[in-house]
Simulated assay, not measured.
Amino acid sequence: MRTAIIIPARFASSRFPGKPLTMIRCADGVQRPAISQSWAAARAAAAALPGDVACVIATDDDRIADACSALGMDVVMTPEACLNGTERCAAALAGLAEVPDLVVNLQGDAPLTPIAMVRAVVALAVARPDLALATAVMPATPAVLAHLQADAAAGRVGGTTAVCSRDGRALYFSKSIIPHIAPGSVPMAPVLLHVGLYAYRPAALAAYVAAGPAPLELQEGLEQLRFVDAGLAVGAAHCAAPAWDLIELNNPSDVPLIEAALARRAAVEPI
C-alpha cells in the first residue's frame, strides 16, 4: 500500500497569520518553525506505518515553501484557490510522483499529533473502505477541557469537539464545546476533542472537491463538515489521550503551551 502523509500549510490564516513559520522552542531547546515539528511527527508516523509512505508539505506560499525546503522537507505547490487543507491535499496529488492508495492529512498546526493516532486512523480507513473519511477523537482531559473553556470565555476560537453515534460514526463537529453539559448534571457522554488528522482515498477527495463548500462548513470553519453535509460516511477512531496535552496552534497564546507539551512528549515519545 502506498500512503502519502500530506501537511497542508498556508500563510494567510485569518486568526493567526504566518503561524506555520511561528518560532517555537522545541524539546532540545532550539527554536524552529512550528511546521518543522509537524514534519517531525509525520516522519515518525511514516516509519510506523506499513507499506511505502511519503511525506510532503502542501502550500501556496513561497515563504513557507522556501523555509521548508531549506530544512530538507519535500514541498508541493498548490493553488491559492484551495479553501482548506482537504482541498489542498486533493490538489497536491497532481504534484506527487505516484498517486497513493491512501492520503493522510496531518495538519500543519498540530505538531503534537501522536504516532499511535496516525496508526489508528490509517487502520480504520483500511478496515472500512465504506468510509469517505476516517479521523480521530479522544476524551478531553481536564486540562484540555479547561483550555477550551478559557478560550470560549475569552472569545477566542480554540479547539474542535465532536459527537459520535454508538457505532463510531461522527455526527457533528463544532468549534463550540459539544455536547452541552447542564450545570450540576452528570455527563452521560465525554466531551470528545477532535484531532486535526484525516485519512481518505483519492476518490473521496475528488468527491469532496466536487461537492463544493457547505453552509455549515463555512459557518463553523470546519472543513470536515462538508463530508457530513454531503451524506458521506465519516468514521471516528476513538483514541486514548496521550501523556501530553494535545493542543493545536490556533492562537499566539498557544505557543508557550505547545512548548511545554513538546517537552513532556519528548520524555515518552521522542520524534
Results as ranks from 00 to 15, higher is better:
residue 22 T to W: 09
residue 68 C to P: 00
residue 209 V to Q: 04
residue 110 A to M: 11
residue 215 P to K: 01
residue 204 A to P: 06
residue 180 H to D: 12
residue 117 M to W: 15
residue 10 R to F: 14
residue 179 P to I: 04
residue 13 S to Y: 15
residue 166 R to P: 12
residue 125 A to L: 14
residue 260 A to R: 08
residue 148 L to S: 09
residue 164 C to R: 02
residue 234 V to W: 00
residue 225 L to F: 04
residue 17 P to F: 01
residue 109 D to N: 11
residue 175 K to A: 09
residue 188 M to C: 13
residue 187 P to R: 04
residue 28 D to H: 03
residue 102 L to R: 02
residue 189 A to W: 09
residue 235 G to S: 01
residue 114 P to G: 00
residue 131 L to S: 06
residue 229 D to P: 08
residue 138 M to L: 15
residue 224 Q to L: 14
residue 179 P to E: 07
residue 6 I to E: 05
residue 154 A to Y: 05
residue 228 V to W: 05
residue 233 A to L: 13
residue 34 A to W: 06
residue 40 A to H: 06
residue 197 L to P: 05
residue 1 M to H: 07
residue 131 L to C: 09
residue 137 V to Y: 09
residue 196 G to K: 07
residue 203 A to M: 06
residue 41 A to F: 13
residue 24 I to R: 03
residue 115 I to N: 13
residue 57 I to P: 00
residue 141 T to R: 05
residue 9 A to E: 09
residue 111 P to D: 01
residue 118 V to S: 04
residue 246 L to G: 08
residue 135 T to R: 02
residue 27 A to P: 12
residue 188 M to D: 12
residue 39 W to E: 14
residue 226 R to G: 03
residue 30 V to R: 15
residue 42 A to P: 09
residue 56 V to Y: 02
residue 109 D to C: 09
residue 118 V to D: 04
residue 125 A to W: 14
residue 149 Q to H: 03
residue 39 W to K: 10
residue 132 A to R: 09
residue 190 P to S: 00
residue 1 M to N: 11
residue 12 A to W: 13
residue 195 V to K: 08
residue 147 H to K: 14
residue 31 Q to A: 12
residue 254 D to V: 07
residue 62 D to C: 00
residue 227 F to N: 07
residue 69 S to H: 01
residue 16 F to N: 00
residue 222 L to S: 00
residue 219 Q to R: 12
residue 119 R to V: 15
residue 151 D to R: 12
residue 35 I to C: 02
residue 228 V to P: 08
residue 45 A to D: 06
residue 12 A to S: 15
residue 128 R to G: 07
residue 257 L to A: 15
residue 190 P to M: 02
residue 149 Q to G: 01
residue 205 L to I: 06
residue 100 P to I: 09
residue 267 A to W: 13
residue 248 E to M: 12
residue 161 T to D: 01
residue 199 A to K: 02
residue 162 A to Y: 08
residue 268 V to G: 07
residue 163 V to S: 10
residue 223 E to K: 03
residue 92 A to W: 05
